[in-house]
């Protein structure tokens, strides 16, 4: 599996560290139901068998956080972009 880093170009996946699902969002700790929201945020995942947006860190290269869109059934990568502030863990 090779990830086409927007900064470094195509690199082997051993240069990257995987964090996981990029669609979960850290909830507001001041919210009324913060405990329930944090439970979902920390533990529950869609785990789809298809297209998956996920966070990878290019620790062996430019040290950027990336949002990779990958088909989990085939490992085919359709999109790689820099993570923005909302995506970052």
């Amino acid at each position: 599996m090779r990830i086409n880093c927007p900064y470094c170009g195509p690199r082997g996946n051993e240069e990257f560290a995987y964090l996981g699902d990029a669609t979960v969002r850290r909830p507001d700790p001041a919210a009324e139901d913060a405990a329930a929201q944090f439970y979902e945020y920390v533990y529950l995942r869609d785990n789809p068998a298809g297209s998956h947006r996920e966070l990878w860190y290019h620790g062996g290269g430019c040290r950027s956080w990336l949002v990779v869109t990958r088909n989990i059934r085939t490992h085919e990568i359709s999109d790689v972009a820099f993570a923005d502030a909302g995506d970052k863990p």
């Binding site: 996981g20 699902d21 979902e40 533990y43 529950l44 995942r45 869609d46 785990n47 789809p48 068998a49 989990i72």
Partner: peptide
């Protein structure tokens, strides 16, 4: 490994990744 897929048929979201 297919737990999340089958559980999704019942509308469940689980603390599991494949």
């Amino acid at each position: 490994g297919n737990t999340s897929r089958v559980a999704a048929l019942a509308g469940l979201r689980l603390p599991i990744e494949s």
